[in-house]
Design a protein around this nucleic acid. Sequence first.
DNA 1: ATGGCTTTATGCTAAAGA
Length: 254
Amino acid sequence: MKVATWNVNSIRARFDHVKSWLEKNAPDVLMIQELKGLDFPEMEFAALGYKSVFAAQKAYNGVATLSRLPQEANENKLPGDESDEQARYLETTIGGIRFINIYLPNGNPVDGDKFAYKLSWMDRLKARLADLRAEGVPFAVAGDFNVIPEERDCHDPQAWAGDALFRIETRRKFRALLHLGLTDAFRVFDGAGGRYTYWDYQGGAWPANRGIRIDHFLLSPPVTDRLLSCAIDAEPRGMDKASDHTPVVIELRD
DNA sequence: ATGGCTTTATGCTAAAGA
């Protein structure tokens, strides 16, 4: 089973890139973040053999999970705050595994409500994942975490020192997710630094490889035991009118 | 660098992203 995650920075603007990537890579599942609008090209993806489950809102956020295997919808909101209207969370079941597609809040600037929202969102995520662990549900959490876990995941740790993606409060809460018994799939196979999933549009960040690793797969133990590979596919970042993020792909033993 | 790019929006400037 081949599963991917990709923040596409608008599905409308990036549909052709996503279509060509699906045709070339043929994943069984693709989790997309930052739809950035209410219109979702459900029929177009169905024509490619993928059925979609999605949570969308106007202009911002939005997540979709595409699958060519049978898919059942579970949750489209992260529990813990009924007043939270942001479309950042989607749980579905495919092949007996719960797939949790997240677009974790950015959190900048750190001196206001947005950082507090990010941190409380991470607490809510931890509570949800702890429940699923207690229930014995095998799961994979994937998406744009907006978290740089460690210095080796960042081209210039000093430049990011005060940023919401790298603040110690953020990294501590990410580590608390790992402490539930989850595995950062990319780190199973690659301990080197300089492996990134996001490069800023500005200042020639992509050609200079000034990036950060913020798109992740966190796997519960029974799913980790089936993990065969995890790789960042940087190719789409080099396309014209690219998303600023690139896909991460895992393979699971059947 | 106080976002120097990119995208969306009852749009032509503002907001958000990371």
